[in-house]
């Protein structure tokens, strides 16, 4: 057994926790629980950033951690909870594929992501090199979640989770992105959620439902 230093073990654990949360989101039917899981994922991400900041001593990572905490653990979940209360969607309908099937596909995706990340991992010299595969897997799993859900809210959750994966990947590869990019992304996400919130109301007003298959009727009939 290799004896990894403590911070490395902590990082690995955080990475695994992120993946675990991604799978938990994939298997979760209730929208409220989905938001909570998202908040936890944000918290883990913040913890990881903090850990890296402490390890590398780079100041901007502290800021990034604080930003993540404020935005992803507090603000966005709060917004989403409010949205859900007002829209009264608590439960997604049956996903397009049953949960076991989705999980199985997810498993294959993880293997795929890791095989893909293998060559990159060998090149990377940063402390978090084993995490690149996980970041990729988180992104792909979020994608999978967006594909398999019907309700618009769950799809947005997938989108947000994907952004978490991207951020984590960036951190694993190069200790985070430049500050300005990170700020921009954070703003983007915030705006996206606000816009999508408005969008939800519009959809519901139009179709009396948030089920996205109603949008299929918008296509032109030949």
């Amino acid at each position: 057994m290799t004896h990894l230093p403590l911070y490395q073990q902590l990082l690995d654990s955080c990475a695994a926790l992120l993946l675990l949360l991604s799978f938990a989101m994939l298997s979760q039917r209730r929208v409220v629980a989905l938001v909570n899981l998202y908040a936890v994922q944000g918290a883990v991400l913040a913890a990881t950033t903090l850990l890296l900041a402490w390890r590398t001593g780079e100041d901007h990572l502290y800021v990034s951690a604080a930003l993540t905490l404020a935005l992803k653990v507090m603000l966005l979940p709060w917004l989403l909870h409010r949205l859900i209360r007002r829209l009264q969607v608590h439960r997604d309908t049956e996903p397009l594929l049953n949960v076991s099937g989705i999980m199985l596909v997810g498993l294959v995706i993880v293997v795929f992501a890791f095989s893909l990340a293998q060559p990159i991992t060998r090149l990377a010299s940063t402390a978090t090199r084993s995490a690149i595969g996980i970041a990729l897997a988180v992104v792909l799993l979020a994608f999978l979640m967006m594909i398999t859900r019907r309700k618009a809210v769950s799809q947005v959750m997938g989108f947000l989770s994907m952004e978490n994966g991207v951020l984590f990947g960036a951190m694993s590869a190069s200790y985070g992105m430049p500050m300005i990019v990170e700020l921009g992304i954070a703003l983007d996400v915030l705006v996206a959620v606000l816009v999508l919130g408005v969008f939800f109301f519009q959809i519901r007003e139009r179709f009396d439902s948030l089920d996205l298959h109603h949008l299929e009727s918008l296509k032109e009939h030949q």
């Binding site: 990475a15 993946l19 799978f23 076991s100 997810g106 498993l107 993880v110 595969g133």
Partner: peptide, 13 residues
């Protein structure tokens, strides 16, 4: 599947 994933993650990391 979680258990399988656990094994997988262990092997991968």
């Amino acid at each position: 599947l979680f258990a399988v994933l656990g094994l997988l993650v262990h092997v991968l990391l």
